[in-house]
Amino acid sequence: MTASTPAPPTAGASAPLRRRRPRYGEAVIKGMLLVAALVSVATTIGIIVSLLPPTLRFFERVGVWDFLSGTTWSALFEPPSYGVLPLLGATLLITAVAIVVAVPLGLAAAIYLSEYAHPRTRKIFKPVLEVLAGIPTVVYGFFALAALTPLLQSHWPFGDGPEVFNALSAGLVMGVMIIPTVASLSEDAMAAVPHSLRQGAYALGSTKRIVAIRVVLPAALSGIVAAVVLAISRAVGETMIVAIASGNRANLSWNPLEGMQTMTGYIAQAGEGDLPTASFDYTTIFAVGLLLFLLTFVMNALSIRLVRKYREVYE
């Protein structure tokens, strides 16, 4: 009995796997991405660490409830008062005016660019629209104070017009500033919707308007929600427009025709260098800054939950 010899490899059989060469380029890219992620996390931690010690010193003298529920803010005057509601109310009011302007116009621009515009027109209009995001905010603030406010005062149809410094002009100009954020991100979300959904709707006899509003818009809802929340965060953190156009008077009012001061406006005013860094008044900057940070963090967390809730996955 003879020993059997191994059969020769048949045609079409796969060749034995060879050890691949190490891909150093991929390792370098992985390392760079990891460093970028760690830098962003470390920056956030650094912001929290820098805000906490002065904020804790502030709350040693001012109660948390008094800070959050007080209706008078006069931290830099005598007698001092540290109720943050006027600053918080002005921030929310101006942000609301900005969102009322930015969301309808931004969504309309996104629907046009995604569903109606010719590809050549889209290539021209989208960069032009995004140029608005590159204009310095101090220019927006000066435009609101020097051009928009006099225009509103001269053409106001009901009673007394806006004051020289007012929340309305600041909110309107801020809304124009964040239109590119809503429009660009929403258009990207709509462009990611598969064309098969559009073709199926057209096959059922739907018009372009019906397809845009009832098919594409719901399918891209998660991206649109993220765009809107990002725009809100951008408006809440805006400084120069409100510092120039809305004034520096802490005023607890829901009348946008009056002047008022936002949280970022106070931080800009108090941080100009007139306050000694070791004084108690200087710690008010960090208390307001921590509240602003927490407000933005809550909005971003809410955005993540909404995006996950309304996300549509297509294969």
Rank of each mutant, 00 (worst) to 15 (best):
G223R: 06
G70H: 04
G200F: 08
S184T: 10
G273N: 02
A192L: 13
S253D: 14
V101R: 00
G134V: 01
V242K: 05
G247Q: 03
G31D: 03
Y24T: 14
A117W: 01
E272S: 14
I232G: 02
L85F: 01
S303P: 02
G265S: 15
Y112M: 08
A250P: 15
V216Y: 04
S233I: 11
R311K: 13
S4F: 12
T137M: 04
P79V: 11
I232N: 06
T10W: 07
L291P: 07
L93I: 11
P8G: 11
T2S: 15
L88Y: 10
E312M: 13
Q261T: 02
A108N: 00
E272V: 13
E130Q: 13
H155V: 04
P256Y: 03
L217T: 06
R305N: 08
V139R: 04
V228K: 12
A75W: 08
N255H: 10
T264N: 04
E315K: 03
H118K: 14
I232R: 07
S246Q: 07
L230P: 00
V62Y: 13
A191V: 01
A90I: 11
T2K: 15
I178C: 01
L33K: 13
A226W: 03
V97M: 05
V225N: 07
G273C: 00
I94L: 11
G223W: 00
L129Q: 05
I47F: 14
G106L: 04
A301S: 12
R249Y: 11
V288S: 09
A110E: 02
